[in-house]
Design a protein around this nucleic acid. Structure first.
Length: 130
DNA sequence: GCATTGACGAAGG
DNA sequence: CCCTTCGCCAATG
């Protein structure tokens, strides 16, 4: 994979558990996130599950923390928690940025959560493989 | 190097 | 049904 964008906040350091692996967990997460179809959403747990670390959904969230540093941009707004809630909206440029992006794609957001989340849910395991 | 935290999630009370 | 605890793993203090 390409090198990750240089960051001043997180330096250029990318968490890599095993150097023998050419990818980092971050990049994998971003990779999956970019494949989320427009107008669809998924959850941190689903991505974690796809990466084989479903018990580490928190790491996905952590990875998304650096999503804003990724290039091309990662549609982090399409990634919500298992409840369909925009748990990460506060990490966007503005508190309303995430919702705006989602509504722009035709996703209805109500009270900080995606309506019809279950219907719009996009499971990488089901859609990409398996 | 231990303790706390976190864009999560499942299980238990 | 709401709240607490625990697990997961990496970063941060």
């Amino acid at each position: 994979m390409k090198k990750v964008a240089k960051s001043k906040k997180i330096k250029e350091k990318i968490p890599v558990k095993d150097k023998s692996k050419e990818y980092s967990f971050f990049q994998d997460v971003w990779s999956v996130a970019r494949q989320i179809p427009k107008g669809r959403v998924t959850s941190y747990g689903a991505i974690a599950n796809y990466l084989g670390t479903k018990l580490s959904a928190r790491m996905v969230g952590w990875a998304m923390n650096g999503a804003s540093l990724a290039k091309p941009k990662v549609p982090a707004q399409r990634v919500v928690n298992r409840n369909g809630m925009l748990s990460g909206k506060m990490h966007f440029e503005t508190a309303t940025r995430m919702q705006e992006l989602l509504e722009k794609e035709g996703i209805r957001v109500e009270n900080d959560k995606v309506t019809d989340f279950q219907k719009l849910f996009w499971d990488p395991l089901k859609e990409l493989g398996l």
